[in-house]
Amino acid sequence: MPQVTFKVWRGNKDGGQFKDYQTDITEGMVVLDAVHQIQAESAPDMACRWNCKAGKCGSCSAEVNGMPKLMCMTRMEDLPTDKPVTIEPMQAFPLIRDLVCDVSWNYEVKKKIKKFKPRKPDAQDGTWRMQQDDVDRVQEFRKCIECFLCQNVCHVLRDHHKHEEFAGPRHYVYTAALEMHPLDTEDRLLDLKDDNGIGYCNITKCCTKVCPEHITITDNAIIPLKERVVDEYYDPIKKLFRMFKPKK
């Protein structure tokens, strides 16, 4: 394969610019390989976060040709190489340097979500019994590797900077995994509506498109949670039924 030009963002939170680098591409290379090659050949000070190189750690999230992707899972042969390939950091988080962002905001949001609260154990030995059918649905959500590409592509964070009011797709997936768990007894719906701003989601499905684990974020996590919020707070007939329903 030929020599390819890469436009890589170089800079920090105070500013920066795209800088051109050229490197040889060989068969089977991924974008992260190219970045490492550029570091070795011409930019040893270029900052880039990576770890597993297998699409499982979620460290090498960036934007390749404008789309949020894991660099380790983006094959060079899938990119047009007749034009420069752009690589830039995620846009929804503060930049530390070059391709590295500070994603710690996500961990702070996650801490605020109510934790798993199981019902009383089913057996005297302190264990529970549940059907496989009941847990099948939440298994999908546990595939999340916290790469935060979904957070990055969501325009509510990326373009509107609603970090104070909106938890983002990653945390809706996390909430769905807890909220739909057959053993869980905690109620997170009020938090979802008020503190975590699920109403800000306008169903662009961009989060689903960029998820490297192919989690159906919008259809299986966000919309079902939105419907549960509607059940609880916006459906007058449901409210009426609840008024006459005997308390447990």
Binding site: Q91, A92, F93, P94, R158, H160, H161, K162, E164
Partner: peptide, 12 residues
């Protein structure tokens, strides 16, 4: 626009 306390890149 920016209600975030974070120092974020300029929205496009």
């Amino acid at each position: 626009m920016s209600q975030s306390p974070l120092s974020l890149p300029q929205a496009r």
